[in-house]
Structures are given as structure tokens and as C-alpha cells.
Nucleic acid binder design. Sequence first.
DNA 1: CTGAAAGCGCTTACAG
DNA 2: CTGAAAGCGCTTACAG
Lengths: 336, 336
Amino acid sequence: MTGIHEVATRAGVSTATVSRVLSGRGTVAPATRERVQLAVAELGYVVSSNASSLATGRTRNVGVVVPFLDRWYFTSVVEGAQAALQRHGFDLTLYNLRGGGRAGVFDHFLHRKRVDAVVAIALELSTGEIQRLLDMNKPIVGVGGPLPGVRTLSIDDIEVGRLATEHLLSLGHRAIGHIGGDPESETDFHVPSYRRTGYQLALEAAGVPIDPALDLNADFTIQGGYAAARRLLSTPVRPSAIFAASDEMAIGAILAARDLGLRLPDELAVIGVDDHPLAAFFGLSTVAQHPAEQGAQAVEILIEELLRTGDEPSAFDTPIEFRLIVRESTARLPSL
Amino acid sequence: MTGIHEVATRAGVSTATVSRVLSGRGTVAPATRERVQLAVAELGYVVSSNASSLATGRTRNVGVVVPFLDRWYFTSVVEGAQAALQRHGFDLTLYNLRGGGRAGVFDHFLHRKRVDAVVAIALELSTGEIQRLLDMNKPIVGVGGPLPGVRTLSIDDIEVGRLATEHLLSLGHRAIGHIGGDPESETDFHVPSYRRTGYQLALEAAGVPIDPALDLNADFTIQGGYAAARRLLSTPVRPSAIFAASDEMAIGAILAARDLGLRLPDELAVIGVDDHPLAAFFGLSTVAQHPAEQGAQAVEILIEELLRTGDEPSAFDTPIEFRLIVRESTARLPSL
DNA sequence: CTGAAAGCGCTTACAG
DNA sequence: CTGAAAGCGCTTACAG
């Protein structure tokens, strides 16, 4: 374990100078700098992050908190954030709330001063949780929904639901089914509820009565979407189109339609949300969100916030882009 | 930012005593202990991990290195490891090699003394990488393949391939196709190659000639499996069964069979590897591995190793369990 | 441009 | 059972 001392000795300077060279702060004569850099390289010296963090109060580490990891959206946000952090020389410490103990994570793990900042993904932090984080002077960025008093990046899920539904309406569909999220799969931000609201608003605006029989819940998986779609497609008033609140559920619906011998898009149109990697494969029309970019964007905001020392943290919401992608799963309702 | 000093003052003791109470090391009179605990609770004090780590040389943080995150296997291992670490009060710092800069990760990130130990998932570390890690006295556990000089948990992919193929052989199949991994999706451990070897060994043992036309590559995704299966099923010598090196590719094969109007399992039997969450939904027979448990097991080994101070690190391979699960996608070859 | 020294917030022999 | 003090390995005013 080479320490800064050995480097200093080898380069014939003080540890202070080594530190200056390594951090880039302060002035060092070019010749000195080179001697130090040589010594560092020869010894393979790497600064101890603990000692450095203790002295500076900065860890160059960001905590990323997710409710769970095994959904495409979360994995993608984390990968995007990770790549961005790495570019900036930051580490990423991952907190997964599913492991149990949300309280533990917030009261303990995050307070150890191991992180400079936190990215909270699809998490509705309580006032207390936010307050504790802010008290510690740690920038927070929330991804996935607005958070009072916190800088956030969020998608307008009502508009997402409306956009998807309006697409179906514009194609002439009137009997439009919906597969939303069940209560268990609600994230903190009630994403499914908002998408459902958008669906209902679009129908209302088009003068289409809302039929509760056409609105079912599932668990955001292909399996769940399949089961819901089978029920939806077995009713006497079979819908001509389905809007599913996620691509995976939409894919389940496509598989259900196939099993029932229904041809897409003529006998059933389907649209999802996400632009999941499988969406193109299934020819699925969807409202694309770009989770990896959301993660990267959250990190950029955080880094900026960390550099802007002193100021009050910003606390507004930045809307995330989304975009309709039309593929083969949706088409104009065939005139009968 | 309450420090240990404030706690000590409030409890009317020295910081040494507070430290003893918090760490559980050393003896403290019960009454004193209670006073300290009360002060800690009242102030919401949490030990600074940097200061503590600097003083003890222990970080209570484990680095987990993955080649990428967006495959079910990796996500599951990470979730399993995370949950186990959290139970032990450890944090998890995630390093993703896809972000670029494998060198950076090993030469720099891991050397900052930010982690006590590392879990390397499906990574074939070079001798140099291993040496540097061992030089730092950090236990390493590799998951997914054997690593010279390192404690590992690994699955015998040759046996996995053999088991899957033997299952098909035992059902009377002789024209057995294979969908393996293409070079790009080879992890460091050449998992696909080994599974292919097992496939070939099983065929040879059964006296079935190996037909290269029945052996294709794909990229471990549903899409890739679909494309490969379509080619496989369009040959004059259409196989009666397919062994795919992952469930996702196997699912692609099932979808391809459906599109071609082939009924499973009578007109085509399919088996995969993983026991992916979608396997049951598709009625897919498979060789199950249990990635979340692999992650958890790796952590348990690491923690044990961290407690066993002084000793030489252990450096052997523990085979990971796998198991044949028969579902509806495989059945006895119908006698013609 | 550079060094001596204090300090970051803990832990742990050591002494009592 | 408990406290005073040294030390973990850096960084950074301060002085020169």
C-alpha cells in the first residue's frame, strides 16, 4: 500500500506538493510536477479515497436508490447513470429498497457520509427523508416523478397515457381497452394511475364513454399483460385496440391476441409505453421514454450542483422527453 | 452534522467510550452504554464511514464488477448480492465494464481503498488484475467461472449443455439443433462455448453425428434466438428439437416455431438454460441456475473471508448447482 | 512555487 | 470500566 509519503520521498518533495499535483489545485513548477508524476506512475500510487474524503468532505461517490432492479426501466436508468458517473470519475453506490429496510437505507446507509449526492429513481421521498438529505447538504435528483422541494426529472405520465390513447383514437378506434398497473406494481409515483388518467381524459375529450369493463390491471410483466389481455379479448364487447401502460404488458397482449387467432393490427391494435428492446421485434407501437438518458441527465445535474458550491440547491422539475413511435401493431380501424 | 464529540459530551463520556458502544468492541458498563445509546438516538448520530474506514482500514463496502447490467443473469446476481450485503450492513459499489474503461476500473476505481472486497461476475480477470487485487489484501470471489488463484463459484457449463442435450436425446430426439452465443456475446468465461461443447459431447456419446448446419449463433436475446431458429427450421433437415444456450434465445425459438406453424412439443421440442422469469410462462423446459442465490452466496463467502483475518485467502472453486426443469416444451419424439 | 503543521472524525492500544 | 492521546492518510490555509 504505497502512501503519499513514499511518493513525496521518491520525488524529493513534500506531501503537500504531491497532493497539489494530483488534485490539480494550486500551482506547481512544471519540473516538479513531472518528477511527482513519474514517482506516482512508478509506484502505482492511488490516493486513498477515505483519507481524501475525510480531509475534503467530498467522496466522489453518488448513491443511487432504486425500488428494485429487475425491471428494464430501472436497470437502464442505473446503467445510464453509471456510465455518466464513471466519465466524471465518480463511483456509484447502489441501494435497492427491495432488499428490505427502506428506513435502514435512509436513516443509516445514506448518512454515513459515503456519498456526495443521491439519485432517487421512481421514489416518492417523504418530507422527512427529503429534509434529512437536504440537512446533510447533499444534492438530490429525483427521476420519474416530481418531488416537493427537490430537483427532479420526470415524465408527464398523464400526457403519456393521453398521447397513446389519442393515437388509437386518431386511427378510428373507439372501443379501446386499457391494461394498467395493479396496486402492487405502483411505484411511489403512481405511474400506472397517471397513465390511466391520461387514457380516460383522452377518451372523454373524444366523447367516448369510459367502460370499466375494458380497463384491467396487471403487474407490468409480459405474463400479466397476457392474462389481462385474454380477459379483455374474451368479453362480448371486445375492444378493437388496447393501450398497455408498459411495453412488456403490451407484448403480453400481442401474444394473447395471437393465441386467440386475432391478427394485428386489423383485428386488434396494441400500443405500449417504453420502447423496450423487444418492442421493435414485436412491431409494437409505443411511447418511448429513454431511461438510460434519464440516468445520465440526472448525473449531469448532480455534478453541476456539486460544483456550484454555496448556492441554494435548485428545486424544480424538468420534464423528460417522450415520443410516439408508430410500428406495425397499430393501424386505422378497418371500416366494417 | 453531529460528530462523535457531541454524542460524548451529551452522554458525559469520552469519544473512546462512544466508539466502544457503537462498535460493540471493548467493555462498557451497562449504565454508560444506555446513556450513550440515548444520546446517539436523540442526536440521530451516524458514524462517518470515511473517518471510521481511515482509522480501521475497513470500509464495509464491497465492489461488484459486471460486464454489463441489462441481462437478466447479471441483474439477478447483483440483486442477490445486494440483499445479502445489506443484511450484513455493507454497501455495494457497482462497477460496470460496459461504461468503458476496464483498465480504469481495475487500476483506479478499485484501488482507492473504497472497498473491502470484490465480487467479479462472469469476468475472467487477468493475472495482473488478480495480482493487484490480492496485493491489496482484498478478498475476491468470482462468480460464473473458475479463476486461477481465486475463490470462485461457478457453474459447469459443459455439464449444463450436456444435461440439456441428454434430456432431448432421452426423449428420442436425434436431429437436435443448437443455438449458441455469438462471439460478441461471449462473456469472459466463454459460457456459450462450453455449453456448445456439452451439446457436442452428449451427441457424440449417443452416437449422433454432429451436423454443423444445425448449430447456429445468436446474441443471447429473444430476437437473436428467433432469427437463428427461423434459419434452423427452414433447412431441409429440420431438427426435431433445439437446445438454446439461454432461455431468452429459447423463447425466440418458440416464437419462431409458432410463426412457422409448428406445434410444440410434438413438431419441435425446445429447451433453454436459466429458468428465466418468462420460462414458465412459455412452458419452457430449461436447466435452471439461480443467479440471485449465486450473488448471495458470493457475499457470504466474502464476509467470512473478511472475518477470518490473517489467513491466506482460500482459492478454490465451488460448483454452483443447476437442475433440469421439464415443462411442456419438451416431449418424447412422436413415433412417425 | 513549496513546506510545516493543523485538521478532517474516527479507533485503539495503553495506562490507570 | 474508562479516558488521554496517537494515528489512520490525506488536504489546505498559512507563511515564506
